[in-house]
Design a protein around this nucleic acid. Structure first.
Lengths: 152, 152
DNA sequence: ATGAATGCAAATAGTTTGCACCTAA
DNA sequence: TTAGGTGCAAACTATTTGCATTCAT
């Protein structure tokens, strides 16, 4: 995962480039966003952030996450549950998601074989691939091995 | 695409099994749903349906599409644009989507190689695959060849 | 008759926006 | 000083739900 310093550096540069301002709120949100580690919903992040900055409002979190996406330090994800999730953007690596329908755990995966097939498929239809979204939904093979399975 | 008679038969059976009732609205919605051919939003479908049945309300379309999904004759899709889309469910075949970001055309694809990799990946993480979602986003290689590219 | 389905309107949930006040540069 | 940012509340969008009425069986 992207370390905080580099994310902050990128954000600062973006902010400067756009003639925007560096604020305490943005710092706090970035810090908690990176600490959360990935796949945070706005609601989650807001809760976390409000521990450090009680007055901070939801609108600011929404606006700031959009800013992070524009600055290239976050990706927006939409699993089918009606709320957007965000995760730190890494410089190089790309990954897709494997989601357990039983316990909600989200794994990340990357598969070169699939990646390359995708470009071929796009080309077959006369398109150049520029993005994709791939989610695999599964169920625990053995519940006991699942770290998040709710204790009976 | 699923022919209307078989979809209607399946729906009728499901309705009977559940002790539900056969209504004119459900017929109309099914007819237009199948005619639309796939990837319809509720808004689209409502507009279409209201031509045939002016008084028909949005809530009924929402409820009926959920019914179609339960009855196994429709799938719900969520591309990231904030509104759900529905398409007829086929008996056998499964497909994923290839979407042109330029003109909005939605192609369908199916790739056995990718399908099989997915199960392997799920297994590696201790899950059994039970569903997946895969979208490829691309851009037209040659705009002229694109049937839906907006005329300049 | 009678329970399910409809249509309308009101309620939700997630997200966006308008605006007066605040704050970084 | 002065644009840009924040916080709050109101607005919006997609969808769901409560309820009186209508309709299929």
């Amino acid at each position: 995962m992207e370390p905080l310093p580099s994310a902050r550096a990128r954000l600062d540069r973006f902010i400067a480039d756009q003639g925007m301002k560096h604020t305490r709120q943005r710092d706090t949100i970035l810090e908690e966003f990176v600490r959360a580690g990935g796949h945070v919903s706005v609601e989650d992040l807001l809760r976390r952030v409000q521990v450090l900055a009680p007055g901070l409002g939801a609108a600011t979190v929404y606006r700031t996450l959009k800013l992070f996406v524009d600055a290239g330090i976050a990706h927006e994800r939409n699993f089918g549950d009606g709320q957007a999730r965000y995760e730190p953007a890494l410089d190089d690596e790309h990954h897709d998601h494997l989601i357990c329908s039983d316990c909600g755990t989200i794994f990340e995966f990357e598969d070169p074989q699939i990646e390359s097939r995708q470009s071929e498929i796009a080309a077959q239809h006369g398109l150049v691939l520029h993005a994709h979204r791939h989610e695999i939904h599964g169920r625990c093979l053995q519940r006991e091995a699942c770290p998040r399975w709710p204790k009976a």
